[in-house]
Design a protein around this nucleic acid. Structure first.
Length: 581
RNA sequence: GGGGCUGUAGCUCAGCUGGUUAGAGUGCCGGUCUGUCACACCGGAGGUCGCGGGUUCGAGCCCCGUCAGCCCCGCCA
């Protein structure tokens, strides 16, 4: 039906008879002359209807937006002075001889062919009318990029000997970790499958089986509240390899990320830098520090003294710490800015934010009084600078100040030091203590190998044990997470014990993994990269919803189809389910 | 589970201190128009002010509740 894509037409096509198919993007009707911007996946071309084809002209005059038409005509150069430099096809137009309406369209509920400066419709409406929103060239480009990145990841990993292997979507529920999406079994009353949160155990079993190198573009499901950067269903580039240590995984991941960035036209240098978790927390208040900016947190605990405020001295006396952020040129932060920064700190459960500004007449602000002049001098607070600080236990003060740091960077529009700041965060703690129950929980997952240097600490001081868990971080975004796994079944059982699982529970929940380990397991490890997030970063998007064809809302609904939805009583009966009200 | 922001015409928004008949741009419908590209010009239709309740002589505006979308905290092994 078509000879060309609309967006392909150039001067070289002048004189050719072409057939185009596409959507009416906009129409300009001058009476005896009608112009149509015709849009397809390739782009937009202008079609001109004149008196030499009266039937086509008449039909063109009645075309409404988003109607699908087939057009036949000749490519001609635009008259002198009529070239549109803003269009890729702007040097030519198609002089139509015939037009056929093949897909009449109702007036679109949300605008597709927007005029310059026209706002997007509300996201709720764009999600409800997703088929229309997807017609926008921006979303088309995002999904094209997504496609290219998927293909590139496959090619790169395949070329390195990784085998793409699919693992089950219907698996076994796991009570720990994220909430599972459950699927009731019709055949087995009262029993359920779970959608995979990740293919973790399957890929370890593949290593046990000797597959050596595995990867998968894996769909994963977690029944937790979504965020701008989190969807209930998402895609991971999941990989695992045998006879490897962390360095091997870093190397293949570095290569893969460089390739993906290259696919998006970005040049990146390797190897990526490394930073221990502890250092990242102390210097940047985050386990995913944005290293494009220098601004660093420092320890101000020792600066609290005689002249400091009572609440600070009391905090330090309790063994807590004071963390400070000196912001060069930060005195331009307005009172409104500082109030907003205080809110950021409070949102992270900090009791408040210390702040001080040094002007020509000296330092002012509540933080100046609370800390005292000697402390300000000790951090070399210069005229024009600001000082921000949080006090309390590090587990609260550091993340709070880390978030304040990012907000300061945003508000002051600080210039990044580099365009791409990749870093591997490593030496994560093996366990963290659940503040509510007091129980030890794995920081990553229970199959993560402890750091060999810390094995002796497992019994006496588990919270000090580091693990072979590593996260690649890019410009303040966690790209993924991985680890070297436990292969010694005895050690794995011991870890389960440390996590409070009885041997019977461990066997019941993870028996198939333990059995695998007992069957002869090679040392292995791997990583899972958040593919949607990578696409979002490379597409320059603000939200995952801009790089997923059919995303869910923050309430995990699919507005276009209306999922989730109630089902009929008889469908529940088949599944042996009853709704409790 | 908690906090914040938003909800007015198909779409994007304005709507003063609570006051008569809720406006604009765009889209839509009708008309004029042979070089437009945000076409221009003339005319017209179009409203459950998210929903429910309350206060008031009177509510788009105030109060309570609720729903939806978005952002954040918790949560995300």
């Amino acid at each position: 039906m078509r000879t060309h894509g609309c967006g392909e037409l150039r001067s070289e096509h002048v004189g050719q008879e072409v057939s185009l198919g596409g959507w009416v993007h906009r129409r300009r009707d001058l009476g005896g002359l009608v112009f149509i911007d015709l849009r397809d996946r390739a782009g937009i071309a202008q079609v001109a209807f004149g008196p030499e084809a009266p039937e086509a002209l008449a039909r063109a005059g009645g075309l409404s937006a988003e109607t699908v038409v087939l057009v036949r005509g000749v490519v001609v150069p635009r008259p002198a002075g009529q070239v549109n430099r803003e269009m890729a096809t702007g040097e030519v137009e198609v002089r139509a001889s015939a037009v056929a309406i093949v897909g009449p369209a109702a007036a679109p509920a949300i605008p597709v062919g927007r005029v310059r400066g026209e706002e997007l419709a509300a996201e709720e409406l764009r999600l409800r009318h997703r088929h229309l929103d997807l017609r926008r060239p921006e979303l088309l480009r995002n999904l094209e990029l997504r496609h290219r990145l998927l293909q590139r990841a496959r090619r790169e990993l395949s070329a390195r000997g990784f085998l793409e292997i699919e693992t089950p979507i219907l698996g076994k529920p796991t009570p720990e970790g994220a909430r599972d999406y459950l699927v009731p079994s019709r055949v087995h009353p009262g029993e359920f499958y779970a959608l995979p949160q990740s293919p973790q155990i399957y890929k370890q079993l593949l290593m046990v089986a000797g597959f050596d190198r595995y990867f998968q573009l894996a769909r994963c499901f977690r029944d937790e509240d979504p965020r701008a950067d989190r969807q209930p269903e998402f895609t991971q580039i999941d990989l695992e390899a045998s006879f490897v240590g962390p360095e091997d995984i870093y190397a293949v991941t570095d290569d893969l990320l460089v390739a993906l960035w290259d696919e998006a036209g970005e040049e990146v240098v390797t190897p990526f830098s490394r930073m221990p978790y502890r250092e990242a927390m102390q210097r940047y208040g985050s386990d995913k520090p944005d290293l494009r900016f220098d601004l660093e947190i420092r320890d101000g605990t020792d600066l609290v003294g005689e002249g400091s405020g009572d609440f600070l001295r009391a905090s330090v006396a309790r063994g807590e710490r004071v963390r400070l952020l000196v912001v060069p040129e930060g005195a331009t932060l307005s009172r409104k800015d500082l109030d907003a920064l205080t809110e950021e700190a409070r949102a992270m459960r900090a009791p408040g934010l210390l702040w001080a500004r040094r002007g020509p007449d000296g330092a002012s602000g509540p933080g100046a009084h609370a800390l005292g002049e000697p402390a300000l001098a000790a951090v070399a607070l210069a005229e024009g600078d600001a000082l921000l600080g949080c006090w309390g236990v590090d587990a609260v003060a550091l993340p709070a100040l880390g978030r304040v740091r990012l907000e300061v960077i945003r508000r002051l529009r600080l210039a990044p030091r580099v365009r791409h700041a990749f870093v591997w965060i490593e030496q994560f703690p093996m366990f963290v203590r659940d503040p509510e129950s007091g129980a030890l929980v794995p920081m990553h997952h229970p199959f993560t190998a402890p750091h060999p240097d810390d094995l002796a600490l497992l019994e006496p001081d588990p919270e000090r044990v580091r693990s072979l868990h590593y996260d690649p971080v890019y410009n303040g975004t966690e790209l993924g997470s991985g680890s070297i796994r436990i292969v010694d079944p005895a050690l794995q059982s011991k870890i389960f014990g440390r996590l409070g699982l009885t041997p019977e529970e461990a066997e019941r929940r993870f028996g198939f993994l333990l059995e695998g380990l007992r069957a002869g397991a090679p040392p292995h490890g791997g990583i899972a990269l958040g593919f949607d997030r990578i696409v979002m970063l490379l597409a320059g998007g603000e939200s995952l919803r801009d790089v997923i064809a059919f995303p869910k809302t923050t309430a995990a609904r699919a507005l276009f189809e209306g999922a989730p939805a109630a089902v009929r009583e008889e469908d529940l009966d088949v599944l042996h389910l009853r709704i409790r009200r």
